[in-house]
Write a protein that binds this DNA or RNA. Structure first.
Lengths: 193, 193
DNA sequence: CCATTAACGCAAAATTTTAGCATTAACGGA
DNA sequence: TCCGTTAATGCTAAAATTTTGCGTTAATGG
């Protein structure tokens, strides 16, 4: 049961993948998570169930695959003129997205995936975003803390709250995380690894 | 399909739960996660599959239930004489536990649960632990940062790395998170909510 | 001790998942 | 462009699972 990933991407294979993803997205809007089934998705996508089982293994991996796609940032973060503003603007939008019902479901689906490479993609999305904001701050002449500080100080607390204690994933707290992270004059030692 | 939780805990019900949990724990040591099945567990536990389906709903919720139990801290954290030492001692052990193969699986199983009340229990474990260390520091005459700072500064980054980027969940980084969190002279504003 | 009812066992039915083989179509070289 | 190779899919039957209905057991409260 070795699940292949994006081999022979041309033509049919890509069409099937898109049809299946689309079917999942559509069904997700009209059905609860625990009443989605593979045969159902297959029928709507116009493929046979065995195709889905062979490519994705099971329902969890399929919905995780769709959801991680959904979590990819589609546009560049807004430029507000300061790092603090950029962090707040991005974080606000991210919080809003991830506390919404579909956002929570997507987060859940990704976390339920047995392949941790999928979760790592979410991590990379955030890190790449922090890198962008960091570079932008540098080019403005600001003196931003190192990227890992941004991750540890802003992204990690926010993610932790979103996953474990949603009620405290608020903009108020976001503002506080940003303030604390940027206030600290000492840039500290950069993270290893 | 409303899953009941610990109603009528006396006698038989408790025996069945323990037998099923035990069966899961045993099977987990000799089988990979994706080759566990409900009928298999039921047989070893000496119950019928329908009992498991009725009580836990599905395999994911069952293993999540078992794993969250496993993650409950069983003993009080070591007292090393300083808050920094206590945090390091606890964090070291936690990191070791959670980067191990069974620890990673347990973490995965809990995160895969659709009931976020299960994840919240993990959060409460950590917060309760931070409270313990905080009180202990106070009684020593230390001036510890507020509990939410400990959570945001130490627990959150560690958890974030464990979930999204295991390679950076190291003792070196733990030491750094602790240093940064305790160094900051300004206790800041306490978290709301 | 009894009435009530939650929890369980059992077995049939429904559904999902797997597996074997045939077919289609993407890919690469001549 | 054509052709051989083979990854990917379709189809179908078999296997395994999950669900459901109903009878039974045993925990709970009086």
């Amino acid at each position: 049961m070795a699940i292949k990933e994006a081999v022979r991407p041309g033509g049919r294979s890509a069409r099937v993948q898109e049809a299946v993803h689309q079917a999942v997205r559509e069904l997700q809007t009209i059905k609860a998570r625990d009443e989605l089934t593979v045969p159902q998705i297959a029928e709507r996508a116009g493929v046979t169930p065995s195709t889905i089982y062979r490519r994705w293994g099971n329902l969890s991996e399929l919905v995780a695959d769709v959801s991680v796609e959904r979590m990819r940032p589609d546009e560049d973060p807004a430029d507000t003129g300061t790092l603090a503003g950029d962090l707040l603007a991005w974080g606000q939008q991210y919080l809003e997205e991830m506390t919404s019902v579909p956002g929570q479901r997507a987060l859940n689906d990704v976390m339920a995936s047995a392949h941790d490479e999928r979760r790592e993609r979410c991590c990379r999305y955030s890190e790449s975003l922090m890198t962008t904001l960091h570079d932008r701050a540098l080019s403005r002449g600001e003196t931003p803390p190192p990227i890992c500080k941004l991750v540890d100080g802003v992204v990690a607390p926010m993610t932790y709250r979103l996953l474990y204690d949603r009620d405290s994933a608020t903009v108020d707290n976001l503002q506080r995380w940003i303030d604390c992270t940027l206030k600290d004059g000492d840039p500290g030692v950069a993270c290893r690894q």
